[in-house]
Amino acid sequence: MNKVELEGIYTAYEGGARPVIRGLSLTVRAGEYVIVGGPNGAGKTTLLESINGLAKVTHGSVRVCGIDARKAGHEVRKRVGYVLQSFYFDPFTPFTVEQVVMMGRYGRMGFFRRPQKPDHEVVDRAIGLLGLEDLRKRPIGTLSGGQQQKAMIAQNIAKEPDIMLLDEPFSNLDFSTREFVTRVLEGLAAKGMPILMVSHAFDDLPDRKIRIAIMNDGKITYDDTCDSCEVEAIVRKTSRMN
């Protein structure tokens, strides 16, 4: 079953001289593990935000889990996990890790509903999965960059999304944590959740078939499936460096 269907989309930012994404088509099926590569400014983050409706798609069709993302972006975002590329939380931010992970479920809960026992159970599982049990009561701003990154991944797992979008999720992680997060993502993909990940780190990919989508200048210029050990070589060969 197709979870993401993009057909000839154009995505533009206000004031931009031309669209960032230009005539892009992409289909992602359940359980696929997709690495989105390409040089800086190719439109990788914009592609993720076109899928979840955060960026304005001006032409073309975006269907996510059967929902038209151009018309009902917030409905799509309730069902799509999105780990952002960069974030900063000041050390005095009065939100604990547990609260932040629970926030992943807020959109799905809808207005006027408080977190119930099942919500807390899901949050507990997500915290456990990412190994954050000892940090759950700590203010998120007092955590290291890598620990915050894990908390953000846990937040999106707690959301129980149908699709997971990740933008450079390994940027703040050390090698052992990368391995650990890779195993978590592999587990999600094995259960049928499609993973779309913008990444430049290829040393800890799961041992499985990986689909590579290389973007250049707002378009997908390479799209194929390979073994994980081949990914880095293919990305280097197919990405035009700036």
């Binding site: 979840n52 955060l54 917030h74 409905e75 799509v76 975002r77 309730k78 069902r79 999105y82 952002l84 974030f87 939380f89 931010t93 939100f95 609260q99 932040v100 926030m103 992943g104 479920r105 807020y106 959109g107 799905r108 207005f111 937040q155 959301k159």
Partner: peptide, 13 residues
């Protein structure tokens, strides 16, 4: 109050 973009990404209006 935590983060507007994260709130939007989680599907909150």
């Amino acid at each position: 109050m935590f983060n507007v973009k994260l709130a939007e990404a989680s599907g909150i209006r």
